[in-house]
């Protein structure tokens, strides 16, 4: 009797497993289709640009050291793919650590500034000074101060990530709906509770918008810093190739940077979708 019931129970289990498998297959197909759909526009347009570029170089007989044909760039990229991967990895690492430091610094300062008009007024000029001075000015100084190692690259990347994060986070931390704030105040929520349970969550959409900007700026920061003094990284590779009139390598470096940017952008979008599902629901 008990076995009979066991059989009865097992059959629906098998059916449920089959249903789950089918469901995950459908989900996987949807993901593949979405990725393919999102790749279609850049691949089409990119292909078109490459064709025009190739035609132009061939028809006008442009010398290789001025503008290389796309085929040559691709060849360079494929024949030294390991090299570009390694160098790109170095640059990506510097940019990411810089982004982390810049973001954390901006968050801490933004929290302080959102709570105190005095700090806000006192610190904005400093932030503006950091922002109006181009990285190409800071980069050699940082190399001078921190040497040729990883440090100055990370710091430049952090510096360039800092400002957008700061400004957006301060705005976001103040963007709490007044009535929600009043509900919190009416039960005597502490400043920390208001920050943690109200201000930070409401600031998240602002934070992610800034993160998307900062993540790409960080790569620029790392590259410029490498350009000013380094023995590795894409910035260094491009600088050396540039002085050797090796334009194919320069373009291969640019393509590597594009991949880095695309990866960062996609990672942040993914994270945003995870964390901000409630915010997506607002959108039409």
């Amino acid at each position: 009797m008990s076995t009979a019931r066991g059989e009865q129970v097992r059959a629906p289990v098998a059916r449920r497993q089959a249903r789950e498998l089918a469901r995950s297959l459908v989900a996987a197909y949807r993901v593949v289709r979405r990725v393919a759909a999102s790749l279609l526009p850049p691949v089409t347009l990119g292909g078109l640009v490459l064709l025009l570029w190739d035609a132009w170089v061939r028809l006008r007989d442009v010398p290789i050291w001025l503008v290389p044909p796309p085929g040559l760039v691709l060849e360079r990229l494929l024949e030294r793919w390991q090299f570009f991967l390694e160098q790109g990895y170095v640059t990506l690492g510097e940019a990411l650590v810089g982004l982390l430091i810049g973001t954390l610094g901006a968050l801490l300062l933004a929290v302080a500034m959102a709570h105190s008009r005095f700090l806000e007024r006192g610190l904005y000029p400093l932030a503006i000074m950091l922002k109006v001075t181009p990285v190409v000015v800071w980069a050699p100084l940082f190399v001078l101060w921190f040497g040729f190692g990883t440090m100055p690259k990370v710091f430049i990347a952090a510096l360039i990530a800092f400002f957008p994060m700061l400004v957006n986070t301060v705005t976001g931390l103040r963007a709490v709906p007044p009535d929600a704030h009043a509900v919190f105040r009416s039960i005597h929520a502490s400043t920390a509770e208001v920050l943690w349970r109200l201000r930070l969550p409401f600031a998240l959409p602002y934070l992610f918008a800034a993160l998307r900007v900062s993540a790409l700026l960080c790569v620029i920061g790392a590259v410029v810093a490498e350009w000013s003094g380094a023995d590795r990284g894409i910035g260094h590779v491009i600088a050396v190739a540039n002085s050797n009139l090796d334009t194919a390598t320069v373009f291969a470096g640019i393509i590597t940077l594009t991949f880095i940017g695309a990866i960062l952008n996609a990672a942040i979008l993914l994270l945003e979708r995870r964390i901000l599902s409630w915010h997506d629901a607002y959108l039409p």
Binding site: D179, A180, S186, R197, L198, P201
Partner: peptide, 13 residues
């Protein structure tokens, strides 16, 4: 004290 305003002010997350 309990309060209700014109805006429900629910936390969307």
């Amino acid at each position: 004290i309990g309060s209700v305003f014109q805006d429900p002010a629910l936390l969307p997350w």
